[in-house]
Nucleic acid binder design. Structure first.
Lengths: 229, 229
DNA sequence: TAAAGCTATAATGTCGACACTATAACCAAG
DNA sequence: CTTGGTTATAGTGTCGACATTATAGCTTTA
């Protein structure tokens, strides 16, 4: 689970931060259902904290785009829809494409080696059909490249905001057996480009990879019982 | 100033929202100097509001990346540095490139006509050497294309977060006479590509345009007295 | 019966006060 | 004089209470 440490968060020293982390996990993992309205008194009582701290935590969740808020009405967990999923993938295509380009230029040799190792781990897990942990490996792969871009703002934007949404959708789509073999091949090409320090190619391949992932995810989502945004 | 209405904000009904807008403007226009530490009691007294409301507004500013916060220490206005400026431009290159591609695909004919009109306005102001308002025209141009992408999340990310930083830097760099003739030519090519519905070309041209703008801005920033992040 | 207005209730927005933490000034010891 | 520890102070984090707004249910009237 390097993708958790790779991203954030420092030890949450304040109550609001702990609450934020707890609620964030609860939302991402579906404990709190999508689209549900948040009752401040109720949640505050459930977690044994003051409404003030809770409101601060909700504010942070709003910035992560995990809840939406309307004045004098309240906050509710985001829903999910194919349109939103496409929007997220369009942003990922652009931003992670750039990240791959920058990673090819800025990654240290050591980081490239580590990236190759993640790929080998991915390969091993495919051989053993451990599809349950492949999601984590996939996140590790993408986070490593994003980190390698060395663009702090890009890193925060992707790891800290956008990937929350990715995990939000991924948990709800839950493809039993995913396209991991295909994804592995694409990952392999990307790493090769980075090893050659070919930023242009790395960007092109990453964009292709994310488009393919998008098509697959959208198909799965539309095959689900139903969805709503 | 269509760029203001084009972006947000609904009538700020709550105190915290009004405060947020006021503080945001004050920061962007340099009323509150970059890098300054925020004293909650002081600011709350200055604006005649409670610390609670102020803290909520500061939270929103933190999400816009206009202030940074550390637990038990406090918040301070962001500084500026060449590195950060480069980071912002790298994100803009990727995100606005994608926006231009999507705009070429999704803009209505009406919107394309409006975009062309903005360009003519730009041309007219160049002829009259009204460089003081060219910044607004430039923002109008970019915001129109971003809106044309029809990707709500991308729109929010760019118009609502990243462009605050653009304005933050732009106000402090304050190029007396900018590269408006060159920029106009580049804008012209982009609009032509969008009119032809050539998304691929629109993206390429937009990325080129933003790279050129980056080189120019960085040169200006490094020629300034000094800078700090 | 349906629609409009009113009332009661619950939830959100706002505030002031208290608790805890970090910083700075001061003092003491080497 | 410098360094380490201690204390005082200012500032942030947290909380409970009040004010204001939205919502649901009831009443009234056409």
């Amino acid at each position: 689970m390097a993708f958790l440490t790779a991203c954030k968060l420092q030890d949450p020293v304040t109550i609001a931060d702990k609450l934020f982390i707890d609620l964030r996990r609860a939302i991402l993992e579906g404990e709190i259902p999508a689209g549900k309205k948040i009752s401040e008194p109720e949640l505050a009582a459930a977690y044994g904290v003051s409404r003030g701290s809770l409101r601060e935590a909700i504010g942070k969740l709003e910035n992560c785009n995990l809840v939406t808020r309307k004045p004098n009405i309240g906050a509710r967990i985001i829903g999910f829809s194919t349109e939103q999923l496409v929007e997220i993938y369009q942003i990922r295509e652009a931003a992670e494409g750039m990240a791959a380009r920058l990673a090819a230029e800025n990654m240290t040799e050591e980081e490239v080696v580590r990236l190759r190792k993640i790929l080998e781990q991915h390969k091993a897990e495919i051989a053993q059909h451990q599809s349950y942990s492949q999601h984590d490996v996939d996140l590790d792969f993408h986070f490593s490249i994003i980190q390698g871009s060395k663009n702090k703002r890009l890193i925060r934007m992707l790891c800290q905001d956008l990937y929350d949404l990715v995990r939000f959708y991924r948990f709800r789509i839950q493809s039993g057996l995913s396209r991991s073999e295909q994804a592995f091949q694409e990952h392999n090409l990307i790493v090769s480009a980075i090893e050659r320090r070919d930023g242009e190619m790395a960007e092109t391949l990453m964009r292709h990879h994310i488009r393919a992932s998008r098509d697959y995810s959208c198909k799965l989502l539309e095959a689900m019982p139903h969805s709503e945004g």
